[in-house]
Simulated scan of single mutants.
Amino acid sequence: MNIQPSLIETLSSLIETPSISSTLTEIDMSNLPVIHKLAGWFENLGFHCDIMPLEEPGKANLIATLGQGSGGLVLAGHTDTVPCDESLWKSSPFQLYEANNRLYGLGTCDMKGFFALIIEAVKEYLATPLTSPLIILATADEESSMNGARALVKAGKPKARFAVIGEPTGMNPVYMHKGIMMERIRIIGQSGHSSNPSLGRNAMETAHKVISEILNYRQELTSRYNNPGFTLPTPTLNLGCIHGGDNPNRICGHCDLDFDVRLMPGMDSQAIRTEISNRLLPIAEKDQVDLSVIELTPSIEPFSGQKESDLVKTCEKLTGYSAKTVAFTTEAPFFSKMGMDTVVLGPGHIEQAHQPDEFLPLDAINPTIKLLKGLIKQYCL
């Protein structure tokens, strides 16, 4: 029989196994080493493990199930991390480091640490017959395409009644969050010698007009949509990056402008995309350039759970915190689409995620384990 590693050993092993996901193929990594580690540990605990390969090479989800029957509880997390600049870290991002009552490392709070805490919590119930299954879900590519969650929806599994996604929320239950769409406006003009502007059609000058129109549209969105349940109660539109031209003495023949929109519940990404295209078309026609609005990644719709749901109320009781909303995006809308009562709830804070010297506070460990035990007792025993 294999000896189960301690919590620190488990987390250390996960942190030491890089699993960066990125839209840039040159830094994107496989998550299979993390999936196989988790599968081995959960199999040792008596779980049945189903590794679900994705269409993308080197990517997979893990569905680990303890017990049988209908209903049950999903404890979910993603196995990938964002990219990092190692030069900005005080220690290696791929080595667990303890200092200042914190555990440092890439993925400690977002969100490999959640799996180590799940393993500690389930140990108490391994000899106890479950009346409903406990399902551990580990997904791929949450930080980039969300293809792992999309594959689950397509496959229609797992089937469960409740789902808790352990993203860093400071142990506050989250019942609603914004969605996101990431788009590119591509302008194709005509390059030429800069000494005579009439020789070309400057894509960057069109981009200047496009930006002005996009900012006007942003103002309209904030007046059209308002949900006081959010700290920032309106949608946001961020101009993220712009690339165009190749030399000062050439008329810019090509320009890309990338932006995102944080969608409020009730907003539809396709409708927003169509509105933007319709507003920019007259500019393109006047400047005699080709303009297209391109979806960079499939949109993630907003998540809107029920504040009075059984799971929300249970999480409020177990944590002592009232349910809230957040502006960041998770896999929750995919789980909700599969019919699960879903809450986002986990240790650590979003302010530590995607940052150098990411950490998980030591004083968050025992409360999280206690919470997970309470959820298992409530929904699986």
Rank of each mutant, 00 (worst) to 15 (best):
M267K: 12
N100V: 01
R150P: 05
M338F: 10
G77E: 11
N31A: 03
T25C: 02
T169A: 04
Q288C: 14
L221N: 01
F359E: 00
F335D: 00
G200W: 15
P235C: 11
R150C: 02
S6N: 06
E205L: 15
D141R: 09
L280E: 04
T206E: 02
E98D: 07
T329Q: 15
D28N: 09
M182S: 12
K313M: 13
S269R: 01
H243K: 13
K324S: 14
K324C: 15
C255Q: 03
F303H: 03
S70D: 09
M340Y: 07
P333C: 08
I369Y: 04
C109W: 11
T222E: 15
I251T: 06
R224L: 13
N196L: 15
G320M: 11
I188E: 10
D363C: 06
G339Q: 08
S92F: 05
L152V: 09
L360W: 00
P367A: 03
S198Y: 10
S269T: 15
E56V: 13
Q219T: 15
T17I: 03
Q95Y: 06
E220S: 10
L381H: 11
G305K: 02
G170C: 04
F359H: 04
D357V: 12
G67H: 11
T274K: 12
T81S: 11
P158F: 05
F328E: 02
M29H: 08
G192I: 13
I365V: 06
S195C: 07
E16K: 07
Q352T: 09
T65H: 12
R184T: 15
M182I: 09
L117W: 03
V312D: 13
M111K: 02
A364W: 05
V210I: 11
C241K: 07
I27C: 06
A271K: 13
S304I: 01
L38C: 08
E285W: 05
Y104K: 08
P228E: 14
M340R: 03
C84R: 08
A127I: 03
M264E: 03
D290Q: 13
I180L: 14
T108Y: 01
S92R: 06
S277A: 14
D50C: 08
E98S: 14
E331W: 03
G179S: 04
G77Y: 08
T368M: 00
K370F: 08
D110M: 00
F42E: 04
S19K: 10
T325V: 07
N249K: 07
P347V: 01
N100E: 15
G244S: 07
G105F: 05
C315N: 02
A151M: 07
C84H: 07
A99K: 15
N226C: 14
P53R: 10
P361F: 00
T131N: 10
G244L: 14
V293M: 05
V153M: 06
S299V: 04
N227V: 10
I3M: 12
G229Y: 07
R224W: 01
D110S: 02
D141M: 11
D363T: 11
F230A: 01
A116C: 02
N196M: 15
I27F: 01
G77I: 13
D256K: 01
A364V: 02
E331S: 03
A138M: 08
G72F: 12
N247M: 04
L152A: 02
G71S: 14
I300W: 11
